[in-house]
Computed example of a mutant assay.
Amino acid sequence: MTNAHRVYAIKYGHLERTARTNFIHPPGDHEAAMPMDYFLWLILCDSGRTIVVDTGYNARAARERGRTMLRHPAEGLARMGVDPRLVEDVVITHLHYDHAGNVDAFPKARFWLQEREMEFATGKYMCRDFFRLAYEREDIIGMVNALFDQRLEFVDGDAELEPGVTLHRVGGHTAGLQMVRVATQAGPVVLASDLFHYYANLELAQPFPIVYSPTELMDSFERAKAFVKDGGWLVPGHDPLVMKRFRPEPSDPEFTVRLWEPAG
Rank of each mutant, 00 (worst) to 15 (best):
Y212I: 01
A105Q: 11
V87F: 13
R247D: 06
F227D: 02
T21A: 03
I141V: 14
S213P: 05
I210M: 10
L42I: 00
P214E: 11
H72E: 12
K108I: 06
E119H: 02
T2D: 10
L133F: 08
L241A: 13
G164F: 13
V53K: 02
T215W: 02
V7G: 14
A74R: 06
R169H: 03
F111L: 13
R65P: 01
L147G: 00
G76T: 15
T21R: 07
I51F: 03
K229A: 14
D29L: 03
D139L: 08
P84V: 05
D194M: 09
T184Q: 02
D89W: 04
D194E: 12
T93L: 10
P250E: 09
R17K: 07
F39E: 02
E64Y: 08
D89P: 00
A62Q: 10
H238G: 15
A186V: 00
G231L: 08
V103M: 05
N58M: 05
T184W: 02
Y198L: 09
D129E: 06
A19K: 07
A105K: 00
L241N: 08
F196S: 03
L204K: 11
P248H: 09
F39I: 06
L95N: 12
A183M: 09
V155G: 00
G264K: 14
R169Q: 08
L40N: 07
L167P: 03
R17G: 01
V211Q: 03
V144W: 09
V7T: 02
F196Y: 10
W260A: 15
K108Q: 15
A4R: 09
H72V: 06
F39V: 05
E88Q: 12
D156S: 04
M179S: 07
L15A: 15
D156E: 07
Q150W: 06
L95K: 07
T256M: 15
V228A: 11
G81C: 04
L77D: 15
D194K: 06
Y38V: 02
H25D: 14
E117F: 05
R169N: 04
R63V: 09
R151N: 07
V53A: 01
